[in-house]
Design a protein around this nucleic acid. Structure first.
Lengths: 146, 146
DNA sequence: CAGAAAACCGAGCAGTTTACTTGGAATTGG
DNA sequence: CCAATTCCAAGTAAACTGCTCGGTTTTCTG
């Protein structure tokens, strides 16, 4: 039940862009530095977010990335699904297209994992990037970064 | 956010033992066949459950495994933690002993993952093996197995 | 118009993990 | 004794993770 760095870094990057939403495009180099992520690696991750349409890119000098929508319209769940695929503790309880399973009818543990899946989805879909930014501002008294 | 077969098979095996709680020890071969798991692989998994004290073994002919406690006293969360370790989408939000993280003070995504962790734990700890057996009996009309 | 800053692209890769298999040795009931 | 069974240790193929490397293309600025 571990999150890979894809989801972890992807969310950090989106949060970073959200914190600076409304200004110039942010070069990936800056995001990578601020969030402590390898730039080249993050490049691959943000490519996924771009293809899915969560961020827009501006090429060339003074280019960078911006959120495709305001932070209030982007749920954490959107980011995680983009990076990690459908929420699915097991393939047979995947959101959207659960894998076939011969024992579907009487596999009780399936029910357990479906409940876990729903509870994860509910948390992730109840938090927007805007929420995260608000929380960050609140807890901001004792820090210098960002 | 995927469960490995360790947790998956481990729970299936515990459920199988729970369904036959009170009778003779059940040989692993039978559990493996009923649940569709490689016997030798399951052997390794149940060794963990034994060391942790969730099952007891009886060696020799007519031996096998039995639950160490009644199904009502074993939570799904106990089984999953035994097999997969503490619930922890990220190391820095692990139950019990979260890994150190330089950015603890201001890492907002940490809060998200702590909420996910709690929601998973709540589901897993709210279901006992007895609950699973009860549900299995209910949905039993259309099946021949078990 | 040159140069630099940036996004974009694709391949490679070392290490870890996963999900097993294999081949036994020890224990015990009948 | 012997068959059933647990117990144990090692090996392994394939996939995955978390990167790095080496570029090409686009576009702003001086």
């Amino acid at each position: 039940m571990r999150l890979s760095t894809k989801g972890h870094y992807g969310l950090k990057a989106m949060f970073d862009l959200a914190m600076h939403y409304g200004s110039e495009p942010i070069p990936l180099k800056i995001v990578a530095e601020r969030q402590g992520i390898s730039e080249h690696y993050l490049e691959q991750l943000i490519a996924v977010l771009r293809k899915i349409g969560l961020v827009k890119s501006v090429r060339g000098a003074q280019g960078g990335y911006i959120l495709a929508k305001p932070p209030s319209e982007i749920k954490v769940g959107d980011v995680i699904r983009a990076m990690e695929g459908p929420i699915a503790p097991l393939d047979c309880v995947s959101e959207y297209e659960p894998a076939a399973c011969e024992k579907v009818d009487y596999c009780i543990s399936r029910d357990v994992w479906a409940r876990v899946r729903d509870s994860i989805a509910e948390v992730l879909d109840s938090i927007t990037l805007e929420d995260m930014c608000r929380d960050a501002q609140k807890g901001q008294m004792h820090k210098s970064d960002l």
